[in-house]
Simulated assay, not measured.
Amino acid sequence: MIKIMIVDDQPLVREGLGTLLGLRPGIEVVGMAEDGTDALNKALLLHPDIVLMDIRMPKTNGVEGTKLIKERLPDVKVLILTTFNDSAFVFDALGEGASGYLLKDMPTDTIAQAILTVHHGGVVLPKEFTSQVLPELRMKSHDKPAEFPDELGELSDREREVLMHLGQGLNNKEIADTLFITEGTVKNHVSNVIQKLGLRDRTQAAIFAVRYGITIF
């Protein structure tokens, strides 16, 4: 059973999503919270597997809430719930350790599948939303030019291709289909990229790709 906690400042959203997800086999809603600080306090007591975290809340927002939880409970995974208007906060939340993000108006089936993906160690980066926020993030990066890390030179051409596709939100199967290689090979390349760049996980790799505007040689 996957134990989840829902964090949103709107009671109707919390309760509605909780009711819908509570009907799903294999998912148990163990608690709800109204902001990031409340989420940490309850997570310390309830020990959820996954926290569904709204990103825009009036007290402690989702970025700060993600940071609080990952600092105290690093094994608890956070999945951000967002809207198209929240793109400025999304990559900050990912940088604090969130395992991905979903649009709030996605079907319950999609949210339930995302919970399963994150529970099994995956990352959720919806391509449609990623394509919207990439230009914005790149514009911000151009405002503050950053030199490419030396570690980038250690990547092979294929690893750099894989890194680029991670930044587009593709999963292993989609990358494999695009590059005409096996999923196992993609998995190995992803592991190599993470290790060579000194990153924590594929989410950080995706953020890295976007921040530095990675393109194929």
Rank of each mutant, 00 (worst) to 15 (best):
M1P: 09
K3E: 12
K3W: 05
V7E: 00
D8I: 00
Q10L: 09
Q10M: 14
P11A: 12
L12R: 08
R14V: 00
L17N: 00
L17I: 01
L17F: 02
G18M: 00
T19Y: 13
T19M: 13
T19R: 14
L20T: 06
L21S: 01
G22S: 07
L23T: 13
R24W: 04
R24A: 05
G26L: 03
E28S: 07
A33F: 02
E34Q: 07
E34H: 03
T37W: 14
T37G: 15
D38Y: 02
A39Q: 01
L40C: 07
N41C: 08
N41M: 15
A43D: 11
A43E: 06
L44D: 09
L45C: 10
H47S: 14
L52N: 01
M53S: 04
R56F: 09
M57F: 02
P58Q: 11
P58M: 08
T60I: 14
T60S: 11
G62D: 06
E64I: 12
E64G: 05
G65I: 04
T66P: 09
K67Y: 13
L68V: 08
I69G: 08
I69Q: 11
I69D: 09
R72G: 05
L73Y: 10
D75V: 05
D75T: 11
L79C: 07
I80A: 01
T83F: 06
F84Y: 15
S87W: 07
A88E: 14
D92Y: 11
A93V: 10
G100R: 07
Y101M: 09
Y101R: 10
L102Q: 11
K104Y: 08
K104W: 06
D105C: 06
P107W: 07
T108M: 11
T108G: 03
D109R: 15
T110Q: 13
I111L: 13
I111D: 02
A112T: 06
I115T: 05
I115Y: 00
V118C: 06
H119A: 14
H120T: 10
H120M: 02
G122S: 09
V124K: 03
L125Q: 12
P126S: 10
E128P: 03
F129S: 12
T130F: 07
S131L: 10
V133R: 08
P135F: 12
L137K: 10
K140N: 14
S141N: 03
S141Y: 04
D143L: 15
P145G: 13
A146G: 11
E147S: 15
P149I: 08
E151Y: 05
E151Q: 15
E151C: 09
G153D: 12
E154K: 15
R158A: 09
E159F: 09
E159L: 07
E159W: 07
R160A: 04
V162K: 03
M164P: 01
M164Q: 00
H165C: 02
L166I: 03
G167V: 03
G167Q: 02
L170D: 06
N171M: 06
I175E: 01
I175K: 04
D177G: 03
T178G: 02
L179M: 02
F180N: 15
I181P: 03
E183K: 13
T185P: 02
V186T: 07
V186H: 01
K187N: 10
H189Y: 13
V193M: 04
V193H: 00
Q195W: 05
K196S: 07
L199N: 02
L199T: 07
R200H: 12
D201F: 12
D201A: 11
R202P: 06
F208Y: 05
V210K: 00
V210H: 00
I214Y: 00
I214M: 01
T215C: 00
I216C: 01
I216Y: 03
